[in-house]
Amino acid sequence: MRRSLLLAAVAALAVGCAGPWAGRAPDAGRASAMRAEPFHLLDQVERGTPSWRASMHLVAEGLRAEAEGRPAEAVERYDRALQVEPSNPYAFLAIARYLAEHGRPDTALGHLEQAEALLASRGTPPGLRAHLRGLRGFVLRELGDRERGARLLEEARHGAPEVWADGFLDAEELL
């Protein structure tokens, strides 16, 4: 009897904890499908061909430069990353993030499309889906499509609450 009560209490607690999230989810199924291990770009660095690795290192250097307040140097690193490996989706993603943050959502959208297309062919890492969605939501909101933007941002919050809680993807959060 006591054991049953304990189980019931744990269940109630679980439901209670899930409550706020469940209430905010526009599409709970999609959001939970998106929820995955947090994405870290550095996990992708040591995989692949030499040019891929060099390109990924340059993207990582760029993100660090951004995080340390050297945006011009960061953009330069992203450009070089693309010179070494023109089909590196993470370089396009980093540029899209940078452009979105610097008030250029229209240009950011093109880079985001390119990143998504390149990732889609290779298989998007599950943890990255929330970032793609969140970034698209952010860009759409900036472009004036508030409704779709808010929905996508909400989905991103569910997919990666530790990153998207503030509705924003910082440079170091991609690392």
Binding site: T49, P50, S51, R53, A54, H57, R80, Q83, V84
Partner: peptide
């Protein structure tokens, strides 16, 4: 020109 980039494996 665009710069030449050197990296391991090249």
């Amino acid at each position: 020109s665009a710069p030449t980039i050197l990296y391991p494996g090249l």
